[in-house]
């Protein structure tokens, strides 16, 4: 099993860390160089964590567990009006991004109100393409509970709800987890108390993702998503020219490839692994609801009968 971690250290000799992780069979997912510092988001084999931690100590860097690494999270606002944006929604999305997740902000067309809220089939499918959906709701307990009764219909991924009142998760219907102390906030969240709330949200999402990881581990994927990413980078040259942020976005059970489906799906389906199998044998290559991108979902071992 691969452990998602974040390495923060100096630029000097950080390539030693990169090489070590690659040699151990791990993956570097993202590298951000910030002046003299570097932040690496990586997946490390869980049995070799100690070696990586020792290396980090030698380089005077720090390795922390980042459970949000390699996941794609949808931050859903009832609409894109000033009521919800730019504060709060962007703060949440940005904070989760800093913790290593790729966040997409989704503003619904008619998500407002307690009785009149609606979600369209397209929006539902789009949200279902992510690993977790964070629904950023408002101030009133009654409204949050009433709205939750019908609002998330058809959403199959874990649902995290935020709002102002402190509620228990079991009081909010259909929610996987609830985080309080948010509500409709119209200022930048920067006070220590607010940052603690954001930290709590990241922890809750981390736990939810860990649970999903454990579920996946029971019936492991035939191919690990970072492996899909690596093979596409090596075999599909055009991905290098893609100007989208994170041209290959990792998810827990697959990846989103930001290339047009029509032109590239065959090429991707026929990608060869050194083990002698092609992509279509270990994963489903599907059209994504997001633009004309490609969505790859790795198949579990129970379907393929093998793991590469």
């Amino acid at each position: 099993m691969l452990e998602p971690v974040m390495y923060e250290g100096g630029v000097y000799k950080h390539n030693h860390m990169v090489e070590l992780v690659e040699d151990l069979g791990g993956y570097i997912l993202q590298k951000n160089v910030l002046q003299t510092g570097v932040v690496l988001l990586m997946l490390v084999p869980i049995n070799d964590m100690e070696i990586v931690e020792n290396k980090a100590r030698d380089l005077l860097g720090k390795v922390t567990r980042a459970p949000l690494t390699g996941t794609e999270i949808a931050t859903v606002a009832p609409t894109l009006a000033y009521h919800h944006l730019p504060h709060l929604d962007c703060d949440v999305a940005e904070f989760l991004r800093k913790k290593g997740a790729k966040t997409n902000m989704i503003g619904l067309a008619r998500g407002v109100g307690k009785r009149i809220c609606q979600i369209t089939a397209y929006e539902r499918d789009l949200i279902n393409e992510h690993d977790v959906a964070v629904f950023v709701l408002g101030n009133y307990e009654h409204c949050i509970i009433e709205k939750s009764k019908r609002f998330y219909e058809g959403i199959e991924i874990p649902i995290i709800v935020t709002g102002a009142p402190e509620l228990k998760t079991e009081d909010v219907p259909n929610a996987t987890a609830y985080v309080g102390n948010f509500g409709r906030i119209l200022h930048h969240m920067r006070h220590s108390e607010e940052l603690r709330t954001l930290d709590k949200l990241a922890d809750v999402i981390g736990n939810v993702l860990d649970n999903t990881r454990m579920e996946i581990a029971k019936d492991p994927l035939a191919v690990a998503p970072p492996r899909i990413k690596k093979e596409i980078e090596e075999q599909v040259q055009e991905i290098i020219d893609s100007l989208h942020p994170l041209p290959i976005t990792l998810q827990m059970n697959g990846a989103r490839v930001k290339l047009p489906y029509k032109e590239y799906h065959e090429q991707i389906e026929n990608i060869k692994f050194v083990e002698g199998v092609t992509m279509k044998e270990v994963a489903r290559v599907l059209p994504s609801k997001m633009r004309d991108f490609i969505l790859i979902k790795a198949l579990p071992r129970s379907e393929t009968g093998f793991v590469i």
Binding site: N139, Y140, E141, H142, A164, P165, E166, G183, R184, I185, L186, H187
Partner: peptide, 17 residues
Amino acid sequence: CADAVGAKATRILIQDN
């Protein structure tokens, strides 16, 4: 408002605006 937490959040919201 009967919902004290909601009332407080709304008050902050109005002040911010």
